[in-house]
Design a protein around this nucleic acid. Structure first.
Lengths: 221, 221
DNA sequence: AATTGTGAACCTCTTCACAGCT
DNA sequence: AGCTGTGAAGAGGTTCACAATT
């Protein structure tokens, strides 16, 4: 469990909401808002005002009673908390359909995640240039990670290769992974993995559509 | 909140884990396993055995004491629970980088999610064929949804258009959305939205890397 | 008057522990 | 003997409600 500078344990859910607040603040600032209340932030994300205040309170007291939060100030604070007040060099492993789409993904670049290295082991792909980046041989991963100052890797390879790729990258001192393969990869302590499993989300929708009706209230119905 | 046939309230977390069990069962079956214990299912997903049994117990008693679960049988049961024991016709709105990558996404097709319709409003894209599917004009959405028997839509358009696209699709009776735009879309009761926000996952990794050290124990340190 | 920050209450989800079944 | 199914306990996350502040 990750811990805030104030010593509070921070849940995943709180971290995800901080990201949302950050986007809402950007949006508000662009619209000319200079202060914002917890209620307004909540409305923008279908949450409660208490939730917003509680989330922020784990990291400090950023608001002004009677007034709300200064938009630019809170945005800066959240950027610092999330560690996105600087850029991160990212490597992509796997230049398939999904991987190639991510090379040039605006939302990554806008938040300071820079795709510096693209690796694959397919001879047909190595040497090809996608969105201005040349695919390099995964065999040279150690050198590429070092040269590229890579801190985060995106793994977009077929399921059967994902664990091996992650293991190799852990050896190369990469400590954070965004995994698109539909398996649970095992990693040692101190290594972070987030899974991006788009089929699971569709299955959750399938479940919701399939089970949406209320259960029977009485046996006779 | 979605409710199981037995009348239990089912959390999102449980639904996501069911998807994982389903994949694990496929994997186990392919490896020749015919029965599996809750402990084995747990190990494959870094969970506890009690969690696995509790999740399944919301829907019925599928196991045999002393033996475990029959792999094929449990797989069939979970497929039925998730509603993936049949195919779902899906529409994609937005044929940008990410959208195009999803047209031909194996993991969708394998679980029975068939991309039947691709829509955009960009004249340069309408008429183009990607992975064998022709991009149609979003202006004809009503007809396309009807003809395609679309039940689920994937929204991969820029943030400022996402709400409008969803509103229009709701009018066309689409009740489930996978949203890739980095905003919270508002929908009426009975409509389901799952958000796929890949930048948020990277931000969670950034947060973990930034805050991984334990807090100071004493002031003097 | 408005809005934050937060302890306490509440609710939900996870884990425990063991009876019950094969 | 082994493993499930589940009520109860425990842990964790959310909401309430109000004192504190501007």
């Amino acid at each position: 469990m990750v811990v805030s500078p104030n010593g509070n344990k921070i849940s995943d859910a709180t971290v995800r909401r901080l990201s949302k607040y950050y986007r809402s603040l950007k949006y508000a600032y662009d619209r000319g808002m200079r202060t914002i209340s917890s209620q307004e932030l909540a409305d923008m994300n279908t949450l409660t005002a208490a939730q917003v205040r509680k989330d922020l309170s784990f990291f400090g007291a950023f608001g002004r009673r009677g007034l709300g939060y200064y938009v630019a100030d809170l945005q800066r604070n959240i950027a610092r908390i999330l560690g996105i007040n600087k850029t991160w060099n990212v490597a992509l492993v796997g230049a398939g359909n999904i991987g190639r789409a991510l090379i040039d993904y605006d939302q990554f670049r806008q938040q300071g995640f820079l795709m510096k290295v693209v690796l694959d082991n397919d001879p047909d792909k190595i040497g090809k240039v996608y969105h201005g980046i040349e695919v390099r041989d995964f065999a040279n991963v150690e050198e590429e990670v070092k040269k590229g100052k890579i801190k985060i890797a995106i793994v977009a390879v077929p399921a059967q290769f994902a664990q091996g790729v992650v293991d190799r990258l852990v050896e190369c001192k990469v400590r954070a992974f965004l995994n698109f393969a539909p398996i649970t990869v095992q990693v040692p302590d101190g290594v972070f993995v987030r899974n991006e499993n788009m089929a699971i989300e569709l299955e959750a929708l399938s479940f919701a559509l399939t089970n949406r009706r209320e259960p029977r209230r009485t046996l006779g119905e």
